[in-house]
Design a protein around this nucleic acid. Structure first.
Lengths: 211, 211
DNA sequence: GTCTATATACAGATAGAC
DNA sequence: GTCTATCTGTATATAGAC
């Protein structure tokens, strides 16, 4: 009783709050902001509409909370911490992991949703950018700088190089997926493409040595 | 000469249709689909709401008509038809023209709008892709193939090369603009960046000649 | 064809009982 | 805190007069 509501282990209120966030995230990602009503979220979460309002105050706050939670849950680039592997393999691992992530249903719908809300909810775009692209560029740039120091790569402008590699990985497949043009290709079908990307990058930046 | 020739009695209807399309396009681009009501469009176009319905049937049709009209009105790459200039200059002209277009308010808002409507109005994304990116890639690939034939460039996979150059030009500036992150940079501030892009591209694909 | 006025539906948000 | 029932605004779409 002295422990503010958590006398029974987990409070029912927290449980419902979690259900709401889960349902809201799923519906917003699936249908967009305006096509999803508070009533529908309440049904999906199996709570009443009033409970939504007592927990989150209104539709805007609920939307922002749902998207924020979704923005920070992906691991971006585990490959970048294998400093023992040769750069070619690290780059290829990074490329495949990243493209797979980018082409996933969830990531595509999150991207669309953030863009749809850019006018009304600018904060979610900020968060999305920081947690996603900006974070990744930083990690990758750090990696490149380590490889320059160790003499494995020769790069004048690591920020530029990092940006270009990541843009090439995305290629056109990403925008086609965002615009829902054609089928989303399986990652295996993109291996040859990513191989060419790594080649192009290393041709430009690998320390000179005959292949 | 006479004016537009469309201001006579029978074409007053056409005149109003034009006003409606113009107003709708402007408001949709500015505010998005759901934030723009038929009543607002009617006011902006200085016609009654009923006239909207008699011309276009409903909100969906009006929206699609407005966006379609907007998709096909930009000239993408005039630089690509100067076959006499050296590739370096053509590439740089293409890059600056393209980036300037991409970073314009209109293009950014159109992009956002198409993505916002991808679920409900898939046809506008198709149209946007064909009129924009796909069209441009085709034109650029043709250019590259002419330069390969004339021996000025050495490219195995021109589709890949074209795609990569265009992606590099867009860089991160485009997505930052779409997400409304920071200020949209002036094109002049991006010249140095685009110079590096052209360098990287030509280093990879220029016919070998000692410098 | 064009306008004014209205019907219909549904969304977000709130009031009050338990 | 949670639920049922309700209020209020607004949007799409239509009916009917000129």
């Amino acid at each position: 009783m002295a422990t503010q509501g958590k006398t029974r282990g987990r409070s029912k209120s927290e449980q419902k709050r979690h259900q709401i966030l889960l349902a809201a995230t799923r519906l917003y990602l699936e249908q967009g902001i305006h096509a999803t009503s508070m009533e529908q979220i309440a049904e999906e979460a199996e709570v009443s509409k009033q409970t939504l309002y007592s927990h989150f105050g209104g539709k805007e706050e609920l939307f922002v909370a749902a998207i924020e939670q979704k923005c920070i849950q992906h691991e971006l680039a585990p490959a970048l911490f294998n400093d023992d592997l040769p750069p070619r393999q690290v780059l290829f691992d990074l490329a495949t992991h990243l493209l797979e992530l980018l082409l996933s249903e969830d990531a595509i719908k999150l991207h669309r949703l953030c863009i749809s809300g850019v006018e009304q909810y600018p904060s979610i775009c900020q968060l999305y950018w920081q947690a996603g692209p900006q974070n990744l560029i930083g990690l990758f740039q750090n990696y490149l700088e380590r490889k320059v120091e160790s003499g494995q790569l020769q790069i004048n402008n690591t920020a530029f190089a990092a940006q270009q590699f990541l843009n090439m990985v995305k290629g056109d497949a990403y925008m086609k997926a965002i615009l829902n043009i054609g089928d989303v290709p399986a990652i295996e079908d993109l291996y040859a493409y990513l191989d060419d990307v790594v080649d192009l990058f290393l041709n430009a930046y690998e320390s000179s040595q005959s292949s």
